[in-house]
Nucleic acid binder design. Structure first.
Lengths: 213, 213
DNA sequence: ACCTGAACACCGTTCAAGT
DNA sequence: ACCTGAACACCGTTCAAGT
């Protein structure tokens, strides 16, 4: 019974049944012990979930171990793309990362790499420090969006969209004129395309806001 | 026993004891009934939480009912500032809004207003449609950050920061050189200042990315 | 120091039965 | 149609007691 063993068991359950089933009691059952035993290695459920995120991030390929020929921007987008793809396999973990500030070593390495790339792009120290937050927020949230589809296999997303459309139509053009105007543009494009656009928006915005007030 | 009554009771508990206590059973107790009775008016817990968000958004002052003298940008920032301040009083709701796509009438009105302001600023229909997502994401996430402080009165945030610093120092300068370089800039500034900067980043980024690929 | 059983104080949701 | 009691199948966390 070790911290590693607990995290591994949790990861297995996560893959098989989702974050909702990653509970102290469930893990204890898998490890053939009582839930109380886990508290020697894990402070509480939040602590456990944070461990899970860092474990997943262990697989990230940092720019230092990649081709160095590409521009800082290409490399930054590639890194964030990898990060999003990795989290997309476990969108519920992305959800969690949105409100639990991660501090694990693998996460810190990611933050470090992004700051470096932003600095390569000419961002000031201030802009890089505040900007790393911004791009990670966009990336994490983009991955978390996928969790809205998962649980009920497509149904959730489809219904969310149709509910949206129905709601807009029901209210009539006069009530939400701008919403009616953009119409299906709201949900147009591919996940890939939207992510890329969002990252561009964030990066360009950061470069345009060097000075911090 | 009405849907309104249930939402009101839930709102009261939210204000007094936080989202974690807003449970079917707790609400039922307050309304002096059994938990099963609520299911006539509310599909499930997620549905209930979504209702709560829209209820809070009822208090938002849309630009149409405000001074029209200011520039589109000033008005957009003011609107988003209000939205964030409103959610900051209930950061746990902000958290929830990050992963449950809201579709209530008050939320739709907010989205409609933001699209209108972005269009005023010269954003294309595409950029406005995709951009409204971007600014709301930044705003909502900024409000959600406050929930990291609330629960244990300051302790959480302080410890999160000190854990971060400790972790960085422990790892040594060589391991995370860029992180060490920006140092306390990472967490510098006021919440207000950071929010304003983030919004500027998002808005400038949107205007710089008119074309959607 | 680590592990365990048992308990405390809770959950969401369903369903048959009543009004 | 709405409401209810009771049940099913779970939770996190603590703590005294054991090894």
């Amino acid at each position: 019974l070790t911290r590693r063993g607990i995290v591994d068991a949790a990861l297995q359950i996560l893959r098989d049944e989702g974050l909702a089933k990653v509970t102290m009691r469930r893990i204890a059952t898998v490890l053939d012990t009582g839930p109380a035993s886990l508290y020697v290695y894990v402070r509480d459920t939040e602590d456990l979930h944070a461990q899970l995120l860092d474990e997943l991030l262990a697989d990230i390929k940092l720019p230092s171990s990649r081709a160095r020929r590409a521009s800082w921007r290409t490399r930054l987008v590639a890194l964030l793309d990898d990060y999003v793809n990795l989290l997309c396999a476990h969108p519920e973990i992305a959800r969690m990362a949105l409100f639990t500030q991660p501090t694990g070593p693998n996460y810190l390495a990611l933050v470090d790499a992004i700051i470096g790339l932003l600095a390569d792009g000419g961002a000031s120290r201030e802009a890089a420090a505040w900007g790393v937050d911004a791009v990670l927020l966009v990336a994490t949230a983009s991955a978390a969006e996928h969790s809205r589809e998962k649980p009920q296999q497509h149904r959730a997303r489809d219904s969310a969209l149709s509910v949206l459309s129905a709601e807009i139509e029901a209210a009539g053009e006069t009530r939400f004129p701008h919403l009616t105007d953009v119409g299906e543009l709201l949900t147009s494009g591919t996940a890939q395309g939207r992510l890329r656009w969002r990252l561009d928006v964030a990066i360009d915005g950061i470069l345009a806001n060097e000075r911090v007030r």
